[in-house]
């Protein structure tokens, strides 16, 4: 039974971010990968859209400079034909401050000829910003 592409991509991303090891990532990415992690790019320059293998690897290098993945728990996962989705709770550490950061991400991936051709990640950046700042965002009581 062939392993689903999601697991290979997950291992490759983990190795890229935690160990700076890009070879595995290079082997799982489609040359023309369509990559987007939604969020405010003025705060987190490694968020946003990228196109192509080189750009995706470059952005993983940027992510690796800022964070380490301590652990992750998949709260939900579905493995379709040539695609997958998961809701993941990440425990991260900021490389600069050693501060723990916890963030939930919805990840969607699509594969073409066994390689990652499309990645979409949604983050709740409200939570992320408050943790990065170390204090709550001051807002109106309710919306």
């Amino acid at each position: 039974m062939t392993e689903h592409g999601l697991w290979r991509v997950s291992r490759a991303l983990h190795a890229a971010i935690n160990d700076g090891e890009m070879e595995l990532l290079e082997s799982v990415l489609d040359d023309d990968v369509d990559w987007a992690i939604y969020g405010p790019i003025d705060m987190f320059p490694f968020l946003g859209a990228r196109r192509g293998k080189r750009a995706a690897i470059d952005v993983c290098r940027q992510i690796a400079k800022h964070i380490r993945v301590r652990r992750f728990d998949r709260e939900s996962v579905m493995l379709g034909d040539n695609q997958a989705a998961s809701l993941v709770r990440y425990s991260l550490t900021s490389t600069s401050s050693d501060k723990p950061i916890s963030v939930r991400a919805a990840q969607f991936v699509q594969f073409k000829r066994g390689r990652l051709s499309c990645l979409r990640v949604l983050l709740d950046t409200f939570d992320l910003v408050e943790q990065a700042l170390g204090h709550p965002i001051h807002l109106p009581a309710t919306v």
Partner: peptide, 8 residues
């Protein structure tokens, strides 16, 4: 489960 960027 409904998930969005609440800051956005």
């Amino acid at each position: 489960h409904h998930f969005l960027d609440s800051l956005d």
